[in-house]
Amino acid sequence: MLIISLIFAIGLFTTIGTAKVSVLDIFKIIGSKVSFMEKYIDISDIADSSKTIIWNIRLPRVLLGALVGASLSMAGASFQGMFKNPMADPYVIGISSGAALGATLAIVFKLNIGIFNIPTITIFAFVGALLAVSLVYNIARIKNKVPVTTLLLAGVAVGQFLTAIMSFLMVIFDKDMVKITYWTLGSLSGKGWEPVLTIALPVIICMIVINFFARDLNILLTGEESAQSLGIDVEKTKTYILLLGTFITAISVSVSGIIGFVGLIIPHIVRLLIGPDHRILLPASALLGSIFMIFADTIARTLISPIEIPVGIITALFGGPFFIYLLRSKKKSI
């Protein structure tokens, strides 16, 4: 059902925008691009400008939003399970501050090292995120074990430290401050097909792999010792989940900036609605995350059109109160 809603949402939110195009036309335009359907769909009555807007601007943007929303939500869901901590989100172990510092460095020093047409900021953010997480991981590691509390605390400490460096750079290079702030608030605008095509395959593969750890995550919720006595290699499993979650989050952050709140609240909302079983929780979080993200992005680009609001503001603005409402009405502890 969520899959159908997602497809519908993609269509619906693609239509909404400054330029009006009907839903039917959108499916026609998309359909016409699929080779075997080409000859059955007549798009000659649709204006060329609409075709361009839909195909070259809105559709890739919506798809990117869907991918980013899905990755953040799934990473959040698996981190919350692994850490057994409701406050965990995809950024909790330093990804966001690492990425932000990386992006800041690229911006303030006007670096340009294009690899495969990928923007330098993206590359720096990605590398920054991975470096930050590996730093946190190594700080928290005691022999071959990584206690989750230490990991969380190390994440907070490293995060604060990196953010301080970033703030320092922002003060020194104050003319870049707006650009950096905009980047950290997250946005999906003006990316085209390039990032969608680059990230789609790795992100989707990682998400499928995370799903194979669903049962392990369930058992981890009952305690690490229980999990170990059921034959789970707890430390290895934690490392795999950490790697996969970090990877998809870092990819998302590097293309879209730090879009907050999605990875924290979507898993909670899904958990409140369908329970803690990760076999359903993980895919459902991904789908709901996608829908929520493209919904928030649609508002971001249309609310005070033609000015764009960073989508991170919208996710927090809508997500926060809705989550509080759910929390109060369900009266369950999370």
Partner: peptide
Amino acid sequence: EYEFTVEDIVMMGRH
């Protein structure tokens, strides 16, 4: 602390 049913929990023993 999580809202698994008793059956879910016992099924974990089959892991």
